[in-house]
């Protein structure tokens, strides 16, 4: 294993962390639509839902690119990993894709007609997609760390049920719960009025549930494949989550959101540290694990990619940061304009 291989293993971890931190909150906002979006009457409900969707409106598309980039970077830096992983998770990835497709279409199309049935359908797409997608991402990442039956040719030999085992599903549910909490804290930070108060109240409950789930999942994984470093990040994740819940209870919304962001990043770090030095360990006797060393690209490809990442990542972070600055204002139901006059 040489330095550049290690750098790319870390960078792919960073991309996944960025994905869970960023898309995590927009998953949460989408999934909480029926809960925090419920108002006093139909008109209020509609306005609250529009407030919620508008807080993530300028950001969700950019957030999703972190997933695309994680996929692209894995393809380029670890082609064997990309090939084995994507063909192994065939049906879960199909469901993930459908979930992402319908929720994205929901964001784009929901507001384009003033029609109750139309909106209800797209709401279902947004809610369903925002729950299914983090669930599948959680299942897949947890399965990878736990290990899968991979043969000598680096081909997956299990079935769909191998992927949907208790630990994998628990990992999925944990990522969903974390996204919900993160989304609630995001809404508390980005809205005004009753949504803000409701989001804070709900966030505390969600945070407590997430803490339990996270401790069980990360503890279980830690006992299976943990290292000293992965235990350290597990502690960071747990402390950050508890701090986030405490900050939320005191009305420190910025700190609460930062806390769940750290939790998400530390969770991914735990996964990657537990994986190291493998990228896809095998559970098969006589099988072969994919490792950082045997799955990677040639030194030249890694070198080219490293230059590109060094130059362009700061630029991406800069303009991504700008969008959060440009749309920093809190939004309440009073800011929601009349719906478009298209029946």
């Amino acid at each position: 294993m040489d330095t550049l291989q290690l750098v790319w293993f870390a960078l792919i971890g960073l991309l996944w962390a960025g994905y869970l931190v960023l898309e995590g909150f927009d998953f949460g906002v989408g999934a909480l639509l029926p809960v925090l979006g419920a108002g006093e009457d139909a008109a209020d409900t509609e306005k609250r839902r529009r407030v919620m969707l508008t807080t993530i409106g300028p950001h969700w598309d950019g957030n999703e690119v972190w997933l695309i980039t994680a996929g692209g970077a894995t393809f380029a830096a670890f082609p064997e990993w990309y090939a084995t992983m994507f063909s192994a998770f065939y049906l879960p990835l199909l469901v993930l894709l459908v979930a992402l497709i319908v929720r994205n279409m929901g964001f784009e199309y929901r507001h384009k007609r003033d029609d109750v049935t139309w909106r209800r359908r797209w709401d279902a797409a947004i809610i369903g997609g925002s729950i299914a997608a983090p669930l599948l991402v959680g299942v897949a990442l947890t399965d990878i760390v736990r290990g899968l039956p991979i043969d000598r040719d680096l081909e997956y030999t299990g079935s769909l049920l191998t992927l949907l085992d208790p630990l994998g599903l628990l990992g999925g549910v944990t990522v969903v719960a974390l996204s919900l909490t993160h989304g609630a804290f995001f809404l508390a930070l980005k809205t005004t009025g009753t949504i803000r108060e409701d989001a804070r109240r709900l966030g505390t409950t969600l945070g407590a549930v997430t803490a339990v789930l996270a401790v069980v999942t990360l503890g279980w994984l830690g006992l299976l494949t943990g290292s000293a470093w992965s235990w350290a990040t597990t502690v960071v994740a747990a402390v950050a989550l508890l701090a986030a819940v405490a900050a939320n209870a005191r009305g420190r919304e910025g700190w609460a959101f930062t806390g769940t962001a750290v939790t998400a990043a530390a969770t991914v770090a735990t996964y990657f540290l537990a994986l190291f030095p493998d990228v896809m360990p095998t559970t098969l006797d006589g099988g072969r694990s994919l490792t950082i060393a045997n799955a990677s690209s040639s030194p030249m490809t890694l070198q080219i990619m490293t230059w590109a990442a060094a130059v362009f990542t700061p630029i991406v972070l800069l303009y991504t940061g700008y969008t959060y600055y440009a749309f920093r204002r809190r939004i309440g139901t009073q800011h929601i304009p009349e719906p478009v006059a298209v029946g």
């Binding site: 996929g71 830096a77 990619m305 362009f312 991406v316």
Partner: peptide
């Protein structure tokens, strides 16, 4: 071909 074909895809995402 991932060693070659993957790089433009990663560039596409990043840039």
């Amino acid at each position: 071909v991932g060693d070659i074909f993957g790089a433009p895809l990663a560039f596409e995402a990043l840039l």
